[in-house]
């Protein structure tokens, strides 16, 4: 299935957000997630399905002003 992750096209096998994080090596990292610009809580990731064309954001803590 073709989706977008952090602005880039990805061909992925995962069908849930939790599975996507594992597939892309995020599973042990502190991240925040959104699908199609809506926030998805960490506890909801296993039950959040992915559909072709979805835009996923995976964000981490960074320096800020």
């Amino acid at each position: 299935m073709q989706i977008r992750v952090n602005g880039k096209a990805h061909e992925v096998a995962a069908t849930t957000l939790a599975a996507l994080l594992a597939e892309l090596d995020y599973h042990d990292k502190l991240v925040a997630t959104a699908v199609n610009q809506s926030f998805v809580r960490a506890v909801d990731r296993p039950s959040t399905p992915l559909n072709p064309g979805d835009a996923v954001e995976i964000l981490v803590p960074r320096q800020g002003g």
Partner: peptide, 22 residues
């Protein structure tokens, strides 16, 4: 102190080390 959220590739650890430092 102010901080932000940014995109990062799965294998990178920059965000994690920054957050540990803070």
């Amino acid at each position: 102190v102010t901080v932000s959220l940014r995109r990062e590739a799965g294998k990178s650890r920059a965000g994690e080390s920054f957050w540990n430092l803070v």
